[in-house]
Design a protein around this nucleic acid. Structure first.
Lengths: 227, 227
DNA sequence: CCAGACATCATTGTTGACAATAGTATCGGC
DNA sequence: GCCGATACTATTGTCAACAATGATGTCTGG
């Protein structure tokens, strides 16, 4: 059995993964004893992990009744995405001001690969490129605070985003938006980068609201779902 | 001795307050046993409070060596404020779209009172009005997620903001910025509200950077320091 | 007098037992 | 047969003792 702080991380990561791939669904109750056994850690580690997950907003504590997987409504998801929008805009704008030649090449390479992936219908590759793009822009923008907030917000709505990424036709919508971000950053146009990043998130919001009545998903995400 | 979850809150609030008023300074080590005695709670409550405070970014844990009050450099404070800027902009823009007649009157009342307070040099009243303004805009904007992020970010730099608010002449700078936010919201001009809110935060950033070489403060904040 | 090893101490981390709580089933009165 | 009270069970919350860790001080050989 793993011990100490390491054990806590095992549980945190395990629960995160379980929420992402749907093994644990919103509203589901998480019993300490069960996770203790499932992960082979002590109860203390599980409790400590719960504290972390609650702080991250992935889970909610109900006094004397344990924790449940947080259920985030579409309305809440929209509010979260609105925040993400302005923060992504900030990062993109900064990236546009700081980007160098090497990074420009890297971004353009990602853009080209995205085009290919979407054209050939390779959703998995597209998703991975998507992650790379976000990571690259985030690194170029050098805004660790904003990046941290975004990753926290993102983790709260992984399920929504995952379902969205499964929507047929979604890559065709998001591709030009991603390319617009790349173009603006490469052109060192901070204002355009801000607008492009916001517009992209707005498009995610619109799709999400449209999806409200037509749900789907349940499959294994692998690494998909980063739209 | 207080018990349970209540005790944890006592410690969290107590440490927050102590950091704000300078009783606990950045880098200072917080020993569990000392706080246990100081607050009259059990060690478990203190540890639990530490977990909360660390998640909030007010304090940092060093494995096997306890927690220290987080030292946030001016550069970090700027990064934090940059995030706050776009988030405040979001809230202000939303407020401009949602404001009703009652709220308009309320905002204008705050604005008038601010003018009077600054004219008469009543810093304390001005600070309180400042808080009221933020709260009012936040409520009108109805963006709980953004508001929550802001309050978290704000708590990380309370000391910086407090020092800033003591600067002579600072109210004369911030007053017109605040009034611009009010005017834009009242005029239901979302774009102007966004710009005004951002501009205000940018002015805080500029003042903070200027202050970098000329520190001050140490006194009792009471309720000052919400610039 | 200095360096390194060792012992000591203060402090944090972990654990297992115990207490408190909420939910559930059982029983008795009507 | 239904309703309320009561006992029971499952689960979370708390605590105090114990273990591990890192820092500090001391001693010894060179």
């Amino acid at each position: 059995m793993r011990r100490g702080a390491e054990a806590k991380e095992v549980v945190v990561d395990g629960v995160r993964a379980a929420i992402l791939n749907g093994e644990m669904s919103p509203g589901q109750r998480l019993v300490e004893a069960e996770l203790t056994e499932a992960f082979g850690v002590t109860r203390g580690s599980v409790r400590s992990a719960f504290a972390d997950l609650a702080a991250e907003g992935l889970v909610e504590r109900i006094p004397n009744r344990g924790v449940r997987v947080r259920r985030v409504s579409v309305a809440e998801a929209v509010a979260i995405l609105e925040c993400r929008g302005v923060l992504e805009g900030l990062i993109a704008a900064r990236a546009a001001m700081r980007v160098d030649a090497d990074q420009t090449a890297q971004l353009e390479e990602i853009g080209d690969a995205m085009r290919v992936a979407v054209a050939s219908g390779d959703v998995l590759t597209y998703s991975r490129l998507n992650s790379r793009l976000h990571a690259a822009v985030s690194e170029i923008g050098a805004q660790p605070v904003a990046a941290d907030l975004i990753s926290r917000l993102r983790s709260q709505i992984v399920r929504h985003q995952f379902q969205l990424s499964l929507r047929p036709g979604r890559p065709q919508v998001s591709l030009p938006e991603h390319l617009a971000i790349i173009d603006a950053v490469v052109a060192r146009d901070a204002d355009a980068a801000d607008r492009a990043a916001r517009r992209h998130v707005e498009s995610v919001i619109a799709a999400l609201q449209q999806d409200e009545t037509a749900p789907a998903a349940g499959g294994n995400p692998v690494e998909v779902g980063v739209d």
